[in-house]
């Protein structure tokens, strides 16, 4: 196969970042991050059934500075991916395609994800 000798689109080096493209790539990045988180979650479930001490060590790690930061990045990623996923489901049934609607739903998703993360924070106090 001949490789085209021209820049491929989108030419991201000169592509102006916009809310729409940033939220789109964030959906992928949060999705990958959540997949990693789920591996740890399932490992933790397995340890809850087999060795409570190790299960407590996993909780202990998420209470350290680094662990807690990771946990809240994970919770925000979860909230964002969930809200933006609902936005995608609306697009899938053909709703909300106008440019103003796309921006409105985009900002709403960011706001909702931040609020959900804050709610988890206050509930776990």
């Amino acid at each position: 196969m001949n490789k085209p000798q021209r820049p491929l689109s989108p030419y991201i080096q000169v592509y102006k970042p916009q809310l729409t493209s940033m939220l789109s790539i964030m959906h992928r990045i949060t999705g990958l991050f959540l997949s990693l988180g789920l591996v740890i979650f399932v490992y933790w479930l397995y340890r809850l059934a087999t060795d409570l001490n190790i299960a407590n060590e996993v909780i202990g790690f998420f209470q350290t500075g680094l662990g807690c930061t990771l946990l809240y990045v994970w919770i925000f990623a979860f909230a964002y991916h969930l809200c933006n996923g609902i936005r995608h489901l609306f697009w899938d049934v053909g709703k909300g395609y106008s440019i103003p609607a796309v921006y409105r739903s985009g900002y709403s998703v960011l706001l909702a994800a931040a609020l959900l993360t804050a709610l988890v924070y206050f509930l776990s106090r």
Partner: peptide, 29 residues
């Protein structure tokens, strides 16, 4: 899409149950 729809209620239930636990200890979970 179908797994996504299922994950909305299940994910929120697990997240808020664990967040609302008084003490997050293996025995409690």
């Amino acid at each position: 899409r179908m797994s996504a729809v299922l994950l909305i209620p299940c994910g929120l239930y697990v997240l808020f149950s664990l967040a609302g636990a008084e003490v997050l200890q293996a025995q409690v979970v």
